[in-house]
Every structure is written in structure tokens, then in C-alpha cells.
Design a protein around this nucleic acid. Sequence first.
DNA 1: TAAATAGTGTCTATAAGACATTATCCA
DNA 2: TGGATAATGTCTTATAGACACTATTTA
Lengths: 268, 268
Amino acid sequence: MPTPEPADERAWLAAYDPRAFPPIAVTADVVALTLRAGALHVLLVERGAPPYRGRLALPGGFLRAGQEDPAAAAARELAEETGLAELPRVHLQQLGSYGAPDRDPRMHVLSVAHLAFAPDLPDPQAGTDAAAAAWHPVDTLDPGTLAFDHARILADALDRARAELENTPLATAFLPADFTVPELRAVYEAVWGEPLHPGNFHRKVLSVPGFLEPTGATTERGGTRGGPRARRYRPGPATRLHPPLLRPAPGPARTTPPTAPTGLPSTP
Amino acid sequence: MPTPEPADERAWLAAYDPRAFPPIAVTADVVALTLRAGALHVLLVERGAPPYRGRLALPGGFLRAGQEDPAAAAARELAEETGLAELPRVHLQQLGSYGAPDRDPRMHVLSVAHLAFAPDLPDPQAGTDAAAAAWHPVDTLDPGTLAFDHARILADALDRARAELENTPLATAFLPADFTVPELRAVYEAVWGEPLHPGNFHRKVLSVPGFLEPTGATTERGGTRGGPRARRYRPGPATRLHPPLLRPAPGPARTTPPTAPTGLPSTP
DNA sequence: TAAATAGTGTCTATAAGACATTATCCA
DNA sequence: TGGATAATGTCTTATAGACACTATTTA
């Protein structure tokens, strides 16, 4: 710790007693993504109090100091907003923290943003705390309507999700405990926003060791418009995909992605 | 940003009055990595006050509430600890936040960890605030000696750095403004901890569009043990490497990496 | 029966890795 | 002159993607 200068007395004191510092509030926010009818949806709440009253925002709330870490707070907030007492098969991971001093007009608030992926979740229950929450399709959503810097957080979350689909078995988090290869392909197509070659995708996902394990069962019926029954699989033990499932090249030479390279805020 | 409604100020102020909640302190910590004599080093400080007095820790400090975001605080702390008034060519990015309630015995402290990469930096100046700071080789460092949960943060940082080398031009952040391909290879070998094939590496990095740009110049002298002069390059405009520079396969089928897939803490 | 789809086969261009070769420079 | 090294070339194997094809099921 730096030696104090006279002008820095308060900082010096705080180095030994953090309680002497002016407070910063800490929240846990959640970008909850799910697939509904083949389209990617995000859970948003309508704010009932200022600031940004009436605007859409990511679900979230303040950490219970001394009681929970950010991940636990995010899980709690998600359960409250969806009205689900228990969160089945929800994959939760940290996205990053957003702490610009003026991002909340009330005071300095640092938000630890999380990503949550889940299979098709029901609509939030009416008549509960979650009454103001609803699933919104991400591709028809106007980012300008979001409160605070939540448009930026959502954009980073989508970037992160798209990137993780390449290197981790994350896509299985959008599906029930067992699923078919075409269903898995639908996840990739919905998140990446582009069609994939059915045949090549099929061969490729099955060639990644530890990604999928056959259950031995097949679907009860064929596709709604015909076709044979598909084999069912469950997620394998792999936590990284080797080799990765790379996205189709977005162009001859893409050199400038829309946001930060890692999906996290960075400074030069 | 729309302005908040000047509604019932006391109502929401009371709801969010920091004194109504047990406070959470926010720090910005930095995992600063540099290459010295071909080996990866991390900047650590010896703590001069409890808790963990005398133990090694990552440099960091409390955020100035209402004045700076985590990235700015991290840059400030790094400058203070290295004794450098200015940080030349330092690449700073957020790693993730660590907020377990008991990670600091004094109170609930949330740490926003950052990664900093820089070319060979000088030793911290004696006689300054940075007197207690020093560079430590990461491969001979005993993680058990680190204070708080900094061993975990360091491990996550190294995982992140190793992964980013595959997909981003991050390696150039360890080198001066212009460099040679063998120097770049030395960065990859030091961070990944394994030798790379010189010929194949050379051809591969030059094949990635936007990664390297020739300056037209060469080194003044050949290698210390002979060999021709090497051509010099500067970083190109690419922010993502297409195709990525994948690490040599760590084994026939690695299914369980040491920590979280993304280098960020996650919960099931 | 017609259409759609699961799953497999085949071919080609490209890339990765092992290895060899040449040219250049230091001691 | 010998040894080390930058840079390039060659060869083999693996992979990605385009496309074709068969089998199965629904309407």
C-alpha cells in the first residue's frame, strides 16, 4: 500500500479501515437468455421506480453484504424475477463488471453482470414480484429503450455467448437434459443468427470428443414436416471443445469487431 | 441518457441509502504481467499492514467513489506501484470480479481484477511508494504465499492470458512498438510454457491477415549466437486472429481444464 | 405419393505439422 | 570455419466445406 501524503489522509485511513471510504453500491445484474420458438429471448423487467421509471432493464438488485457473493445474488435475483422457486438446469456465469461513476444518477453503483442460459422457461408469473418481467426477442429489441448502460451490457453478453458457443458446450445449456443434433443446430443458428449446413454440422459436433453422448433413444416422431426420427444425445464430460466449432467466416478479412475483443470493457 | 425523474427523493434515497445496508467495499486489483529475460513475471507487493501483513499480494486499492471506474482505478494503482508516472504501451483489460463475503476478514470486499500486459518494465523505484513492489517469476512462485484469494485470481489471469494469445494480438502487448517474429515466438513460448516450431510458427503468424505489418527494417545485428538479421514488424489492425493460433494439443482428449472455462468464476 | 429431413458418403481446397534446405551472421 | 538461426520450401496428413445420396417419416 502506498505511503500517505497529507492531502491523502482519508485514503490512507481507508487503506487500513475500508469503512472510512465513501460507499459504492454493488448490484448483481443478469442477462438471462433462452430460446423460445426458435428465437433468442432475453428477460427484461419494467422499472417501477425512478430512475428510468417505465423503461426496460435487466433484472438485478443489490448484494446482501456479508451474506452472498455476486453469483449467488444473481441466482437469487433471477429466481425472484422469473417467479421460479427453483432454477432447473440454469447455467450461470459472470460476464464482467460495469462501474462508471455516472452510470446510475443516484450514486456510484458497480454492477456485476452475469450471463444465464436456460432451456425454454415459462413466462414470469403474474401476480408476483415478477409481474413486470417478460421475455423479449433480442433481434427486434431496440437497445435504446434500455435503462442505464444495459444496452452495452446486453451487447457484450451476446458477444460473449456467440464466442462461447465456439469453444464450450454452452449450447447444451439452452436445451433439455437430452436433445437431438438438429435441436442443437437450431441453438447455434439462433445465437449466431445464420443458417448452418445440416450435414456438415452433424458430422462435426459428433467428432468433438466429449461433447455429445448417445442415449440410445430416438425421438418418438419424425420432424413436423416429415423426416426420420432423430437420435437423442446428452452433454458429455467436455468443458472445452477440441477442436472448436468455428463460425462461418464473417467476411474476407474482418479486422474490427463491433465491441471489445473479449466482450469485456477494456481501456487502452 | 435520459435524466432521472426528480420524484419522491426521500423515498428512493432511503431505499438505497448506503447506511441502510451494510456496506461493501470495492477494490481494483491488477495482475500485471511482463517478460523479463524470457520468463513471465507478475508484479506483487508485500503487504505492510494487516490482514496478511508481510505476505505477497496483487497490487490494488479501493475505488475512489464517484470519481473513477474500475479500469481507471486499476491504471492508477499500477502506476503508483511501479513508480512510473506514465504507463507506456500498457494493455489493460478487466478479468472479473471476486466477491465472496469472507475473502477479506475485515469486511465484505469486492475486488474487480484486471489484467495488464506490458513490455519489459523496469524494477519499481526504491524510495518511492513502490518500494514494496517487485516482479516475481510466475513459474517459481508458490501460490500458497499469496494473500486473500489472490492465488485464484492469478491462476484465472494466466488461464485468460494463455487463451487470449490464441485469438487476439495480445502477445504484441508484451513487446516494444516493433519487433521480430522470433521475439513474438518467445512471448508465446513463455506464456504457454512450451516450445514452438520456429519455421511453422513463422509462416503461420504471417498468414494471419492484419496481425503483423512489416516495417521494412531489420535488426542491426543477428542473433547472439549467430544467424541472419530478422525483419521487424509492428502490430497490424486486427483485433481478432482469423484463423486463431491454436496451442499444440495438450493431450489426446483433455476434458477437464484446471479452472473455469472462461477464466471467470462460475456457478453451476 | 410427394416433400421434408436425419444421417452418411465423397470430393476438393485448405491448413497444420514434420522435416529439409538455403542464406546469413556471430564467434 | 563451424555453429546457430531467419526464412522458405516440400511433403504428408487432417480438416472444412460443398455437394450428393439414401433412408425414413409426415402429410
